[in-house]
């Protein structure tokens, strides 16, 4: 399972303030904490700074890599910001994300074509946000095929079926979960990936909803997540979920986590 640490995101107030104040020490500290918690990638997002996103994103990438050496997940809907951040990134970054929205698709495809970059493929098209499992599968099909045709290998593609708030429509949870399964079964070798916080928008006690949803998604085959890695209960729950989903030979990871005291909160 690929874990992307989500904490360096400007939609979080502490991070927005640190970015605005150019507080390098704070950003570095968060990055180091995430790395030590075991993340594979560190997400960087400056998406609330209108007009300054590109500049700030570059700054974040450089800081995070200097502090941890970890690869970044470059998180922006703006192809120009992505390209600027990539230019200063060392190693193989993850791009979050390409989608089927024409402008974004056309700008990002040449950036990732023929590279070893990891790409999050967001199930969104110019026809709007997908509602059903079938909507999502149809978009995933087009995106995966386009990426593979442009020499991006299947194992570098992380399909994000797009989480929508279950508080706004009862079926939004299950349609997403079924899409995970459909995508993983239809395109053997591809990965799936998502963030969780959208599922609980508009509802109280969000942490519990997010965690339970993550476990359900892992059961359907999800193998990548953008989460807060410092949430020990979340991390432990994911280990257990993978074991229960039959993806932990001889329960090795489960027992390792047990012996390391990761089930003691």
């Amino acid at each position: 399972m690929i874990i992307v640490g989500e904490l360096i995101n400007a939609s979080r107030k502490v991070i927005a303030e640190a970015i605005k104040a150019q507080d390098a020490d704070y950003i570095k500290k968060v990055a180091i904490n995430e790395r030590e918690a075991g993340v594979d990638y560190i997400d960087v997002n400056a998406g609330i700074f209108i007009g300054k996103e590109m500049e700030y994103l570059k700054w974040l990438v450089q800081l995070v890599q200097k502090a941890t050496g970890a690869p970044c997940c470059i998180d922006s809907p703006d192809p120009k910001a992505v390209q600027a951040a990539l230019a200063v990134h060392k190693g193989i970054a993850m791009i979050n994300s390409i989608s089927l929205e024409k402008e974004r698709y056309e700008a990002l495809l040449p950036i990732v074509a023929g590279t070893n970059l990891k790409v999050v493929a967001l199930c969104m098209s110019d026809r709007g946000m997908p509602q059903t499992t079938e909507d999502r599968l149809a978009i995933a099909d087009k995106l995966i095929n386009a990426l593979v045709r442009n020499n991006v290998s299947l194992e570098n593609i992380y399909v994000d079926p797009l989480v929508q708030p279950v508080g706004t429509k009862d079926s939004f949870g299950i349609e997403f979960l079924n899409a995970i399964q459909a995508i993983m079964e239809t395109f053997k070798g591809v990965h799936t990936m998502c963030g969780l916080s959208n599922i609980s928008y508009g509802l109280p006690n969000r942490k519990f909803l997010n965690r339970t949803f993550a476990i359900m998604a892992v059961a359907k085959g999800l193998d990548g997540l953008i989460i807060n890695p410092l949430d020990k209960e979340m991390m432990a729950s994911l280990t257990v979920a993978e074991t229960l989903a039959g993806r932990d030979e001889y329960c090795e990871n489960y027992l390792e986590a047990f012996r390391a005291g990761r089930f003691e909160f």
């Binding site: 929205e101 402008e103 969104m124 110019d126 709007g128 946000m129 929508q164 708030p165 706004t168 928008y201």
Partner: peptide, 11 residues
């Protein structure tokens, strides 16, 4: 233009 996110708008 360019933005397809409608959940907030619908609320």
């Amino acid at each position: 233009k360019g933005d397809l996110h409608d959940i907030g708008k619908n609320l």
